[in-house]
């Protein structure tokens, strides 16, 4: 976890320096703001990972000498199949089409999205198909 954190913090630091140089030199605000936000976007997860990396034991994937057995156990819960991403995708499609062809398309679009949120969430709760 330390390498991940340091990578993000290094990128954030570089963006910070670049932002300071650019903003002071050019006095142009759009780029300055966007670079500043880029720095924050690296520091936010970077600091979180750094904070955790000092509080957790070394994971098997961070230990160069780890054996296969150290990774034994459950990796995570993965869905076998799920229809809800497709339903949500169609909902998003319909919502975007409402921007072009008429606001009434928002009704079926948001309906599909809401249906997909409910379906997907309850699938995650009760455990879906294999």
């Amino acid at each position: 976890m330390k390498v991940e954190a340091k990578m993000l913090l290094a990128l954030g630091t570089f963006f910070g320096i670049m932002c300071a140089v650019y903003w002071n030199w050019s006095l142009e605000n759009a780029g300055g703001v966007m670079m500043f936000a880029g720095m924050l976007l690296c520091f936010l997860p970077g600091l979180y990972y750094y904070w955790w990396s000092r509080r957790m034991p070394t994971r098997p994937e961070d230990n160069p000498q780890a054996t296969r057995e150290e990774g034994a156990g459950v990796v995570g819960a993965f869905p076998g199949t799920s229809i809800w991403p497709f339903v949500l995708g169609m909902g998003a499609f319909t919502i975007v089409l409402s921007l072009v062809f008429g606001i009434w398309l928002l009704v079926p679009g948001l309906g599909l999205a809401a249906w997909a949120f409910l379906g997907g969430t309850s699938e995650g709760r009760r455990g879906g198909q294999h």
């Binding site: 993965f78 799920s82 975007v96």
Partner: peptide, 19 residues
């Protein structure tokens, strides 16, 4: 790894790309 970290989000990415 056995799959992507968020398999259903991955599927959603594809549907957004196709549409």
């Amino acid at each position: 790894a056995p799959d992507m970290a968020f398999p259903r989000l991955n599927a959603l990415s594809y549907w957004l790309y196709l549409t």
